[in-house]
Structures are given as C-alpha cells and as structure tokens.
Design a binder for these strands. Structure first.
Length: 834
RNA sequence: GCGAGCGUGGCGGAACUGGCAGACGCGCUGGGUUUAGGUCCCAGUGGGCUUCACAGCCCUUGGGGGUUCGAGUCCCCCCGCUCGCACCA
C-alpha cells in the first residue's frame, strides 16, 4: 500500500479483482458441504440445516439474463443465510434432456450429447464467473445414464404402485414436434414449445395417475408459503367442483347414460340431451352410419381452436328420458361436450347454461323456465320469458315448474334433489375435477427411455432393476422422418421378454416427458453418486420439504404440480417421509428490454457476459437486485449498471483511503463526528438486516448506500480511525451477499485472514439507536404546521406546552382547540374550530 | 366471461400495524477538478404561488365518493393495465 498521499489511489477494476477469486472458489470447492459424495445427515450438522434450491437450467446455449436474475436472487439469499447461522445445502445441476438437442442434431448434424455437454460447460463457466456459491460436489445432469437410471426406477416404482398405466386416449398431438403432449403443455390450444395448433388423436400412451392425488394436491396448497397466484393457478387447474352424477335411461331402456352436473337443481329445465361425439354409447349405436361417421371425422379433425369458433351438433335417432319429468327428450351429439370431462354426456338446460342456451337457439329447441330470479335481499324479481331472453340466467332464484321443489331457493333445491336422486337410485352425489392424468410418453429420442418391454404373451413387462438403465444408443439417425429411437433396430428389437424370454419382444420406443426428469431431481441432490438407490430415504425426510425454492412462474401448473405428485406418491410407497417438496416459493420477475421479452430476432438481447466484461459480476448482480423487489420484472432499458459501478467504486476508494490513513497515522475523527458515524452504522445494520430478512434487496442496498454517504461525509476532511473502519467493515459484511467479489477483496486488504463470507452477520449496537431527543410533527387539523424537538418519551401535556410556546405555531393555535391527538415520540394533532 | 393482482415525480422504485409522500439511485440543471471527454467532487431537482430574504401557503399517490383528528394505505363505484383459467356441464 502506498504511503505517498499525493499518489493516485488504485482504481476499482473488477476485471482484475474478480476472475482470480472466482477461480479459487471453483477450484477449492469453497461452498461444498462435504468432502465426498456420501449422504448428508442434517442432524449431524452444527448449524441449522437449510435446503435452498433454484430451478436448474436447461442447457440451450449460454446463460441469459433470466438465469442471471434467478441465480443472483438465490445466491444473495443463500449467502445471507450462511452469515446468519445456517448450513445451506445449495446444489446445482442441468435439466439436460429435451427437444432443442434433437433439433440441433436434425438441423445441423450435431451430436445431441456433445451439443448438450458443450452448452453445460459454457453455462458452468459463466456461473463460476458470476460468483454463485453452488456446491460443485453434487452436480447432476438428467441426461447422464447414472441419473436417468433412477428416473426409470421412478417410473417402475409408480408402475408397481399402479400409478403408471398405458391406455388409448384422445391425446394432444403437435404435428410440428411430431409428438404427443400433456394437457399442461397445451396453451390456448397450441403447443407450448412451438405454437403450432394441437390436434386430438387416439393413441395408446403412458400416463401417471396424478388424479389419484387431486384432493390432496388441492388441500395441501393451503399450508404452502407460495405466491397466491401460483396457488390459484393450481387450484384452477385441478378444478374441483361438487355436483351429482345422474342416470338418464334411453327411451328404449337399452342403455343407461350417466351425466355429471353441478346444477342438479335445474333438472326440470333439461329439455334435451347431448353426448360428446366420441361417446362409446353413441359410437356403438351409430356404428355403420355413414353420415354419422362423417360428422365424427369432421369433429375429430377440428382442433380445439377451431371448435371454439362455433358449435356443431348432430340429431341422434333416439331419445333419452329425464328421470324427474319422465319426458322423452331429444338426444344430440355435439362438439361442445367434451369426452374427457365428466362423463362425456350432459343434460342440457338452456335456461340456466349459456352454452346450452346458444345451442337451443341455434337448433330451435325448447327453453323451459324453471327458476325465478331473486334480488340481493331475496325478493322476487320479474319472471323470465323464454321468448325474449337473450342469455341464460345463472343468478340466484327460487324454483318454479319443478314439481315438489317449487318455491325452494335454488341451493336448497340442489341439496334436496341430490338427496332424492340417491334415495331413488338414480345417481349419486359426486365431486369432479378438471385435472386429468399426466401423459408422459413422448415420441422423442433425447430423453429417458421408458423401461418397458412389450411381449405378445406377457404384455407390458417392466425391465428388471438389475438391467437399468435402459440406455440410449449413441448412433441414432436423426435424418429419418419420425422418431429415431423407433427406427433404431437394435434398440427396439435386440431384447427378449424378461418374463418369458420371447425373442420377438420389443422395447417401448418412447421416452419420458422431461418433466419426469425434473419432478424428483431435488431428491437426487442428496446423494447424486449413490449407485445403490435413488436417494437416501431416511435423510430425505429431514431435508424435505425444501425451505426455499426460487424459480419462474411459468412452472405454476407444470413442474410444481408434477413434483408435488411425485413426492406424495413416493411417500405412500415408503420412500420419503414428506408431504410436499417445496415449502416456500419465490417467483422472480422477468428481465425484459423496452417492455418486451429479450430475443435475438428482436435485436434487443443483452447477455450477462457483456455486462460482466464491461463492469464486472458484482455490478451486474447489484444492478439486478437494486432495480426492484425480486418478484418484479426488470426492464433493462430502465436500469443503470453505471450507477451501481459508481457506488462500488466509491466503496472501494473509501476503504483504500482509510487504509492509507491508517498507514500514515492520520488524525482520527473528532468525537462528535465519530459518534454520528457510529450511530449511522448502527442504524444501517438495524435497517438493512430487516430488509434482508424480508428479502427486499433493493431497499437493503439503499440502506448500505446511505451508510456509504455517511462515511463519505465523515471523512470529508481527511480524518478517519476506528469509527470509519467499523462503518466500512459493517458495510462490506452486509454487502457481501450481493457483491461477493469486491467485498472479499477489500475485506482481505483490511487485514483479515478469514473470508468476509464466513463472517457472522453484524449486530446493531442498540444503545446507539435510542434517542434522547426526538422530533415530533405538529399538525393542525391534520395538516403539518411544524416540527418540535422534545425529550424522548415526553407526554402529551409537555409536548402541547412546547407547541403553544412556539411562536411560529401561535397563529395556527389561536382558535379554540377542541381536541388533541397525541402519538408519543411521533406526532401531535390539534383539532381547532375553523 | 370468470378469478387474481397492480396504478406514486422525467425513469426504476421507497413509505412497519392509517401518522412528515417521494427514502435510495438513475436522469437532468448549475458549479468545481481535468488539455479535452469520461471518471470524480459540490449544490439543486414533484407542480404552482407569495416573499428582498428567512420563510410561508396551496395542490399532488389513475378518477369520483365515503370512514377518520388524520388516507398512498381502510370501504364503495368507475377507468386503465397485467397475469391465470376458459365450450369444464
């Protein structure tokens, strides 16, 4: 350190400071919790165990700003937790199977494996450069055979439990990706990934029986510390409703058709009946009818998007009987009734359901009024007129033209009718959900193969545990049309039935949805190299549920729902003692540019690397955290890395100046200045600690900036000493979670051997926070008219007399005071007669 | 259509259970340092008005109404934006 006071102080250059520290942390595995891969028993830890997890990245290229945002928030959380007395399990890995690797292979002739691992290497070095304190001893990639072996194990565990099954169903098919999709991957009738309209096709596919857990997936949400909107999304997706299943016989009494309805009270208004066009009873009864076949073919061809455009119907050549009225009512097949919700058939009540109303008007069907509207106080309103109605009535009312139920409020009628339905054996009360089983088969080749052998004698035969993993061939031909795995003869045919030894058995050539890979990775982090079991079943229950999960809201009904299902299913099979995977969830905001998503094609792409190369990683991290609260979006056009860089330069300079003063034995601050700075330090610790605890990094940083300004102010005249050093050390310690490099460097230069990141979080000297005098706001009729300095704890009378003695307030207090409102140490409000 | 959330300076954003609106920063203006630019340092910065000045007054948190001594915060209505679900019977 130079002792020449005229020498130019060393400039803050993050590009010199940061890389060596980053390399050291990576090389020395600084943030690893253990020397080897052995499982980690949380009860063996000295400090409170904490499992912090961030959604692992997909290796589609280098890290983008969204990754930097999520990792920066997560890393600040983790580093702060370590400094406040926790041992933090903080793993990282890659969600490495998926379509982009296949597309790279198809379009550019790349080897999907090499392409994937090259991207992982690039992302990994960026993560290191940005100073994220992950545990590099527990890294996993879902495309490693050592990992997907256990994904296959998971499939078989679910299969053994009866929770994985294969059936033919109308499934979503994306013609562009040439694969089937789960319902969760269809957005507005389009493929989530490529935007192509999805069509419905009957196919035999594998499903996970997630509906088995619908009730628990719904009720479990109440106890999770998740954003309400995510919980609401899951509630809406599960879509629980209460109603009844009621049997309508056909007029010829040959069939009994079950319908599900949430409004059994409207049954007297059921004037016609609708089947989904694919309903099995209709298909059987209409077999060989060419006109109907044509209708069915047309309906099947139409995508959901087209179906929304208009209702079509087909009058069936038979009637059904309304059990309550005994009437025969006409039966239709119509595409507005879906085969895969409820029972695929409905009683149509045009007066009370908008879709039925529209169809009735279109087809000229009877609209029968069975309810009379009531107002907010239960008073009767005008009767409905079926000839002039323009829309269905869905509000409250009392029953009319409903036999014995006339005069009952609709909700009472609902309860009575359900009871009577059950009494008469016409049906049962029924809870229905919108959630459907999770379709996990994919006609893709860069994924975990489904570990099943198909045998003409034995059917679906699980691959024995000792034969796992079923590995992907290295020599897939991506130039073929369709699935390369399906056309790889050796993979498909070089297998015998594990049960009967039949030589003609074939492997299942589909792979699992990559959401299966990611539905359990947080368990594998507990022992990623254990080749005897997927995870340590005893320790898992201690680490789960994960204390803090950070990631994007786009997974609200995908990954987050699937993972909950998997944990519950594994719990019931005795593999993990936990009900939920993620106790607390933080959804970070998006990083956008000029109000729009960043993308290469729009030319508004900013990548972390270019910010780091200019200003360093600390500035990138600080800029992101200072811009807004973690949940809020950041528009990169609105933020200023230069502002952050300027502040860090100032922290750098102030620290080096203090060191130089120290060397030269400079005069310390005068007592008053030192006391003022000590107080500012205590306040900054007090406030910043609270902001950190609330995860409001933007306001925590603001407090640290205020402390910096206090140091700047105190040292203006070249004095320093213990109070300045104390302020700087508190500042560096509290800045460490946000800007790990500059704080590490300056901490070392201040003469400490241990890392700043191993320091305990500072504690404010509360004695310094207590004021002897306080400023009290004086209001007159609620308007601020002055401020008074009074002794802390002064009572109302004392403050009032000081106020009355103040000549500047005299004019306002001349009128008669009718009331005095007093808030100790804060405010006094005189209410005067106007 | 249903459900949820959000509207604060030129900008990002602060404001604990109702108690000094605009913390902190960006930007901008003026000044200093510098050969120059940048960096850096100092001062100012919601709008309007009064005053030589110290200072003071009025208005202001999307719009309107209400509760209260006091409302960005609570209640009602309206407007705007965002997100989720959507032929779900």
């Amino acid at each position: 350190m130079s002792t020449d006071p005229t020498a130019e102080p060393e400039r803050y250059d993050p590009l010199v400071v940061e890389p060596p520290i980053a390399q050291r942390w990576a090389a020395e595995r600084t943030y690893s919790l253990r020397p080897g891969p052995a499982e980690l028993d949380p009860s063996s830890l000295e400090r409170a165990p904490y499992y912090a997890l961030t959604m692992f990245p997909y290796p589609s290229g280098d890290l983008h700003m969204g990754h930097a945002e999520i990792f920066t928030i997560h890393d600040a959380l983790v580093r702060h937790l370590r400094m406040t007395g926790h041992t933090v399990l903080n793993p990282i890995g890659w969600d490495a199977f998926g379509l982009p690797a296949e597309n790279a292979a198809r379009n550019r002739g790349a080897d999907p494996k090499a392409w994937t691992y090259a991207n992982i290497d690039e992302q990994r070095s960026t993560i290191v450069r940005l100073g994220y304190s992950f545990d590099w001893d527990t890294v996993l990639h879902t495309c490693d055979p050592e990992y997907y072996r256990w994904t296959q194990w998971l499939f078989l565990a679910l299969f053994d439990a009866g929770l994985a099954y294969r059936r033919e169903a109308l499934v979503n098919f994306c013609p562009s990706c040439s694969t089937v999709l789960a319902n969760e991957q269809v957005v507005d009738g389009r493929c989530e990934r490529c935007g192509t309209e999805v069509s419905r096709q009957p196919r035999t596919q594998w499903f996970f029986r997630i509906t088995e857990y619908a009730d628990e997936l719904l009720s479990g949400l109440d106890d999770l510390d998740w954003p309400e909107r995510v919980k609401n999304s899951q509630r809406a997706w599960i879509g629980r409703s209460e109603g009844a299943e009621i049997v309508f016989p056909t007029a010829d009494r040959e069939d009994e058709i079950h319908v599900y309805t949430t409004r059994p009270d409207t049954i007297f208004g059921a004037t016609y009946f609708v089947f989904a066009p694919e309903h099995p009873v209709v298909r059987r009864r209409m077999a060989g009818d060419r006109a109907y076949d044509a209708y069915l073919a047309e309906v099947t061809r139409r995508s959901d998007v087209e179906r929304q455009a208009g209702k079509t119907g087909y009058r069936l050549p038979f009637d059904v009987v309304n059990p309550f009225t005994g009437e025969d009512i006409p039966a239709y097949a119509a595409d507005y009734v879906l085969m895969d919700y409820g029972t695929g058939a409905i009683m149509a009540v045009p007066v009370g359901d908008q879709r039925d109303f529209d169809f009735a008007r279109q087809e000229g069907l009877e609209i029968r009024v069975i309810i009379r509207p009531t107002g907010p106080d239960g008073q009767l309103l005008d009767e409905l007129d079926p000839d002039t109605m323009t829309e269905a009535y869905t509000g409250p009312g009392v029953m009319v033209h409903s036999g014995a139920y006339d005069g009952l409020p609709w909700h009472e009628a609902k309860a009575r009718i359900i009871a009577d339905v059950e009494a008469k054996g016409w049906g049962t009360a029924k809870v229905n959900t919108r959630l459907r089983d999770w379709l996990i088969s994919r006609q893709r080749s860069w994924g975990a193969p489904i570990p099943i052998v198909h045998c003409r004698h034995c059917g679906e035969v699980p691959v024995p545990q000792e034969d796992l993993p079923v590995t992907l061939p290295d020599d897939l031909d991506f130039t073929v049309a369709g699935s390369p795995l399906d056309q790889h003869a050796a993979f498909k045919h070089d297998v015998v039935c594990p049960r009967c030894g039949d030589q003609d058995a074939t492997r299942d050539v589909d792979t699992m949805d990559t959401f299966v890979d990611s539905s359990w990775y947080f368990l594998r982090y507990l022992s990623p190299t254990d080749d005897t079991r997927p995870w340590p079943t005893d320790a898992a229950g201690d680490w789960l549920p994960i204390d803090q999960y950070t990631g994007g809201v786009e997974h609200a009904v995908l990954h987050l729902l699937y993972s909950r299902f998997v944990v519950k299913a594994m719990r019931d099979q005795g593999y993990v003692d936990a009900d939920e995977p993620f106790q607390a969830l933080l959804n970070q905001g998006q990083v956008i540019m000029d109000g729009a998503a960043m993308s290469k094609s729009k030319g508004n792409l900013v990548v972390p690397g270019e910010v780091t190369d200019t200003y360093g990683a600390d500035t990138l991290r600080g800029t992101m955290l200072f811009a807004s609260a973690p949940e809020d979006d950041i528009d990169w056009a609105d933020v200023s890395p230069t502002g952050m860089h300027k502040w860090l330069s100032r922290v750098w300079r102030l620290t080096l100046e203090e060191l130089a003063r120290d060397d030269q034995g400079a005069v310390p601050l005068a007592e008053e200045g030192a006391a003022r700075l000590r107080r500012a330090t205590a306040e900054a610790i007090d406030r910043a600690s609270a902001e950190y605890a609330a995860r409001k990094f933007n306001t925590a940083i603001a407090q640290l900036m205020t402390l910096t300004n206090a140091v700047l102010d105190a040292t203006r005249h070249g004095r320093g000493g213990p109070a300045v050093r104390e302020a700087l050390e508190a500042l560096l310690t509290m800045l460490a979670p946000v800007c790990p490099f500059i704080t590490e460097e300056l901490w070392t230069r201040l003469g400490h051997d241990a890392s700043v990141h191993d320091q305990r979080w500072p504690v404010a000297d509360t004695a310094l926070l207590v004021d002897e005098e306080v400023e009290v706001v004086v209001q007159v009729n609620g308007k601020v008219r002055g401020r008074l300095t009074v002794p802390a704890g002064a009572d109302a009378e004392a403050v009032e007399s000081v106020a009355r003695a103040d000549e500047r307030l005299a004019g306002h207090l001349a009128a008669e005071v009718v009331k005095v409102v007093f808030v100790p140490d804060k405010l006094v409000n005189f209410v005067v007669r106007a």
